[in-house]
C-alpha cells in the first residue's frame, strides 16, 4: 500500500482521498505541500531583501561599469536567458500535467527537457559572469557589482540546486514509479521551479531592463 511511505499520519487506515490529484491524496502530502509554500514565503522575503539592497546600491558604481554599460552592450544574453527560463517553466508545468494525466514516459521526457533548459540557462549565466569578470568587473569592483552578482548569483544558485533536485526526483520516479510520495515530490520541485521563474521575471525587470533603460 503506497500510503505506507507517506510520512506521519494520524490514522493508518485513512483512505486515500479520491477525486484529488495524487500528491494531495494523503494528509501528509498536503501538509508537506503547505510546508513548501511556507518555505517559498521565506524565500520571497530573502529575495526581497536582496532586491532592496540592489535598488539602494545600483547607482554606486565606483570605478566600475554602470548598469547601462554592463547590460546595454549585449542584450542577447539576458534576453535568451529570460525566454529559456520561461520555456522551462512551461515544460515543467507539462511534466506535472503528464503526471496527473497518466503518461509517465512523457512526464520523464518533460523533466529531462526542463533540466536541459535549466542547464543552458546556467551556462549562459556563467558565460555572462565570466565575461564581466574578464573585463575587470568583479564583485569587489563596486557596491553595484557586489549587489548585482549576489542577487543574480543567488538566483543562479537556486536554479542549479533545482536542477540537481529534479535529477534526484527523476531518479526516484524511474525507480519507484509515480505514487503519492513521488508525485508530491515532483509537484513540490515544480512549485520551486515556477517560483524561480517568477524571481527571474523581477530580475530581468528590475536589474536588466531598468539597467538598459
Amino acid at each position: 500500500m503506497s500510503i505506507a511511505h507517506s510520512g506521519l499520519q494520524h490514522h493508518v487506515d485513512e483512505p486515500l482521498q479520491t477525486g484529488v490529484p495524487l500528491e494531495f491524496s494523503t494528509e501528509d502530502g498536503a501538509t508537506k505541500i503547505l510546508g513548501f509554500w511556507l518555505f517559498m514565503v521565506t524565500d520571497v522575503l530573502l529575495f526581497a531583501c536582496l532586491f532592496a539592497t540592489y535598488v539602494v546600491l545600483y547607482k554606486h558604481i565606483g570605478a566600475g561599469a554602470s548598469a547601462a554599460k554592463l547590460f546595454g552592450d549585449d542584450v542577447s544574453g539576458f534576453t535568451a536567458e529570460t525566454f529559456i527560463l520561461l520555456t522551462s517553466s512551461f515544460t515543467c508545468g507539462l511534466a506535472t500535467y503528464e503526471m496527473r494525466h497518466g503518461s509517465h514516459s512523457r512526464l520523464k521526457l518533460w523533466i529531462v527537457i526542463t533540466m536541459l533548459l535549466g542547464l543552458s540557462f546556467i551556462g549562459l549565466e556563467v558565460y555572462e559572469f565570466s565575461t564581466f569578470v574578464s573585463h575587470g568587473d568583479t564583485m569587489s569592483t563596486s557596491a553595484f557589482l557586489s549587489a548585482f552578482f549576489t542577487l543574480v548569483g543567488t538566483h543562479g544558485a537556486h536554479v542549479s540546486l533545482g536542477i540537481i533536485w529534479m535529477g534526484l526526483i527523476l531518479y526516484q520516479i524511474s525507480r519507484r514509479g509515480v505514487n503519492p510520495v513521488t508525485a508530491r515530490k515532483l509537484f513540490i520541485v515544480s512549485l520551486y521551479w515556477h517560483f524561480l521563474d517568477v524571481v527571474w521575471v523581477f530580475i530581468f525587470t528590475v536589474v536588466y531592463l531598468t539597467g538598459v533603460m
Binding site: 539592497t53 546600491l57 566600475g64 557586489s146 549576489t150
Partner: peptide
Amino acid sequence: ALLLIDRIAGAHFFTMLAGGN
C-alpha cells in the same frame, strides 16, 4: 550573508570604499 561576503570575498556592500553603504 552580505557582510560575510564583504569580509571573505572582498565585496563592497557595507564598506566605505567603492560605493558601499
